[in-house]
């Protein structure tokens, strides 16, 4: 009886931990989405500009002059990176979902066990 109770508590703790991780992964994923959107907007904007336009990149409080081609390349690289990160997090989220379901299932089983034993007693 106490054994089952302990197992249940342990399972609950683990489930809560997984849920926290899950929430964190979700919010990171949302941030990545926002970043991707912003970069996409910048890319579109750069594409609208002619080649001889001056581009500046803010590094800290200073604006550094840059070639538009370089800026385009940088943004493209950034988008690539973010896309990879998004894929990575999608996988992490999927795994955490599975983990949560697993915890829920064992928890459910343990609770049923507990019910049975308490009925017998």
């Amino acid at each position: 009886m106490g054994d089952v109770q302990k197992k249940i508590e342990n399972e609950v703790v683990q489930l809560k931990g997984t849920q926290k991780e899950y929430q964190k992964a979700i919010s990171t994923r949302q941030q990545l989405d926002a970043q991707l959107n912003e970069n996409q907007v910048v890319k579109d904007e750069l594409n609208l500009l002619s080649e001889d336009r001056k581009i500046y990149k803010a590094i800290g409080p200073a604006l550094i002059k840059m070639e538009i081609i370089e800026a385009k390349q940088n943004v493209a690289k950034r988008i690539d990176y973010i896309n990879k990160e998004i894929k990575r997090f999608d996988e992490i989220i999927l795994n955490l979902e599975k983990k949560q379901d697993g915890h829920r299932e064992t928890l459910h089983k343990l609770q049923q066990d507990k019910m049975k034993t308490s009925l017998k007693a």
Partner: peptide, 21 residues
Amino acid sequence: VIIDIGTGYYAEQDIEGAKNY
């Protein structure tokens, strides 16, 4: 004028272009 187009990039634009932006 120089406009902030996002993620730290600034682009120089003529007035007409900026208005369109």
